[in-house]
Design a protein around this nucleic acid. Sequence first.
RNA 1: GCGUUCGUAGCUCAACGGAUAGAGCAACUGCCUUCUAAGCAGUAGGUUGCAGGUUCGAGUCCUGCCGAACGCGCCA
Length: 616
Amino acid sequence: MNLVETIRENLIAGIIADKSLNLAREDCERISLDAAPSNFNNDLATNAALILAQSAKQAPLKLGERIQAILQKNPYIDNCSLVKPGFINIEISLNARLAVLVAILQQKHKYGCQKLAQKKIVNIEFVSANPTGPLHIGHTRGAVVGDVLANILEKRGYKVLREYYVNDRGEQMSLLAKSLHWRYCQLFEKKAAEKNNAIPQGFYPGDYLIVCAQALKARDGEKWLQKNSEVWSKPILEFARAYMMQQISNDLQKLGVDFRGNFVSENALLQSGKIENLIKILQQKGVAKLGRMPPPKAARGKEKTQEIQKTKQNATNANEAEREHLLLQTKRFGDNENRVLRTADDKITYFTSDIAYHVDKIKRGAELLIDIFGADHSGHAQRLQAALLACHYSNEVPAHTLKVVSCQIVRLMESGKPMKMSKRGGAFLDLNTLIDRVGKDAVRFLMLTRKSDAPLDFDLDAAVAKSHDNPVFYVQYAHARCHSVLKMAQKTQQEQKGGDEIKSNAYSDDSLAQADFSKLEQKTERALIRDLALFPRTLGNATKNLEPHRLVFALIALAAALHAWWNEGNKDRSRRIIYSEDEATTRARLALVRAAQIVLAIGLQICGVDAPNEMN
RNA sequence: GCGUUCGUAGCUCAACGGAUAGAGCAACUGCCUUCUAAGCAGUAGGUUGCAGGUUCGAGUCCUGCCGAACGCGCCA
């Protein structure tokens, strides 16, 4: 039972059935049913008359009268009023409120779920941080957004596969192996401390590599001290990979993110031959050809350009501009440059393996791909879309299966000031430390308090504050209050009944579902019920737009509605939830509290945040 | 220079193309003999960066400026 969706469907059916309007289902898609603005004394509002005016060739206010008549027939609606531009405000009936509360009390954690006729398979890829160091706050946002989005999609009837793509080959990994080997050799130097500052240019500088090197030494002793990198590079790279992935996996676990073992190795993909195979197909279809690349264009970052050119000169003596690479013709598919698939010296680029990975995800059955990217990957996302169009052109995959959610940067704040983040000094705050400091719940919830494509300030002090300006606390407190009053009610009930009554709970969910809901006529009570009724719609919107923050804002609003209602008991004893002089009213109010608690718990669970029974 | 994203109250931010643009913080005024005041109610605070356009209707879509972040490798 989803009240809002039921009313909407009923309305659309009524409109289509009215032959004189001559409207079809397609015309009705944009019809919405939302919370009515608070200045109107109503529950819901619809824009139907405004949306349909054009197709029906009638003025909104005139058409509104017909729609109003259709709505009036609905037993879930008491009154509706047509106002100014063409909105119709709706007052829902006692029946409707009863239906909402009973649905929640019966369905419990399944409230808000949607069953799709055919489960759509979604592959959601997130984090995918290079295994070259521990996760930090930048990765955390993507981790939480991806995980919660996956939870929401599961609620809404999708079959969701979470994946982490491990970039375990290429230049960065070689560099990691070299850095680790250097650290490892340092462990055997007598004057290690003095040399500690002289980390070779470009090597990974973090202290975590010292710990990693110690682990290597503990396992293998002096085995890799030799200079010949031919001997140590492979085993050390493998050790580093395994070590780092273990750390990352532990940190994710601590954050409550579980990939259920779906870590897909880039190296394994390469070994499988799938990448070469794709290249072959792209060549056959004529979208991959040999060609030269123009020099880098960055005009703004002159220094960076010079740096890149310098690196290249060091890397090879060949004249770069003259070499022919295998290029994907992404220009034909919306990119502003063609991109290198395989270099002249036969190296597969990151770009190529990522394309093959995405094609592979589709071939493994995914009907929709979602990538959660950091802001620094926005350029890559565009190229990837163009590349997938090229694959579509080559009959490899369907078009437009990839949706990219881009997460902007997170700034760590301390007492209102940005924290200095220096990777070089190894002093940056890693995820593990962050969770130790503010807790998993705060990290997760606060990461969702902005829409993903806006930058986020994460304030370490606000995260642990026990007040209204800390949304985690505010929502968890609302849940705890619900539990508190229900517990209190049961306690007084038992005392009155005098102990060992066999039927355990007079306030069980089933029992509360029988309450007399006509007792819930106060404005604050009706507002709360309305919010509960709109909850499934919030999940639907979050799904449609791939925006998990919508859920979080709805939870904050729900908590506010609960706190507001609760406080009315401060002024007027008869408005307390437990009102000893009126058992029927008490039961009805407890049913509402319980329903609110259930919905808060569902929302928190989706966010991966605890729903505590007590605050302490 | 090119691309992506952002620009909303003093601060931090909401608002599937909808109504009189909403919350929290900070400021001011009230509410505890309590089911948790770790909360609530109220006052004040706005030309949604600027200028055009699209339409019944624009903070939202389009174009051009201004400002900020990120990216622009044959790294990942």
